[in-house]
């Protein structure tokens, strides 16, 4: 172990120390050091980590590669174009929708809004079916 300060403070270390001290002064002037000191209490850390370590978050973090891969392939323009439509429709759905039988369905089909929604769904189903066929036999759909 070096005993004298000049043995410890080589030129490189002195330069690094000066930069560190400058940084510390800056952090102190901004109140960061005092705040960090106040925050670093066992109970603050306990509640912070309890909040962060949610099992759902651990599960998501574990699959971050899979999730990012999926998110990277999302067509955000298409999502952006339709998201308001979907949000509005979801909000309008009553909390407890009435059950509908075959007779009720035929009656509902006379409603122009249902007809428009069905048109959207049929177009969506057609596109979905086409994608499924392409996935099964590429180039044949």
């Amino acid at each position: 172990m070096p005993e004298k300060l000049e043995e410890v403070l080589t030129g490189e270390r002195l330069a690094a120390l000066e930069r560190t001290l400058d940084l510390l002064v800056k952090l102190d002037e901004m109140g960061v050091l005092e705040t960090v000191g106040d925050v670093l209490e066992p109970d603050t850390l306990r509640y912070l980590f309890k909040y962060l370590m949610h099992p759902g978050l651990l599960k998501v973090a574990d699959r971050l590669d899979v999730i990012l891969d999926a998110l990277g392939r999302v067509d955000y323009e298409a999502v952006n174009k339709n998201i308001d439509l979907v949000n509005k429709a979801l909000k309008s759905v009553p909390e407890e929708a009435e059950p509908v039988g075959l007779g009720g369905l035929l009656g509902a089909l006379r409603d122009p809004d249902v007809q428009r929604g069905l048109g959207f769904l049929v177009a969506f189903l057609k596109a979905l079916g086409k994608s499924l066929a392409e996935e099964k036999e590429p180039g044949k759909a």
């Binding site: 306990r46 912070l48 980590f49 962060l52 370590m53 099992p55 978050l57 651990l58 599960k59």
Partner: peptide, 18 residues
């Protein structure tokens, strides 16, 4: 505090629900 939070969140009965 870190270990306590981790072991609580990853307890077998918790993760089995997931």
């Amino acid at each position: 505090p870190i270990f306590e939070a981790y072991f609580e969140a990853s307890a077998p009965e918790v993760f089995l629900r997931y």
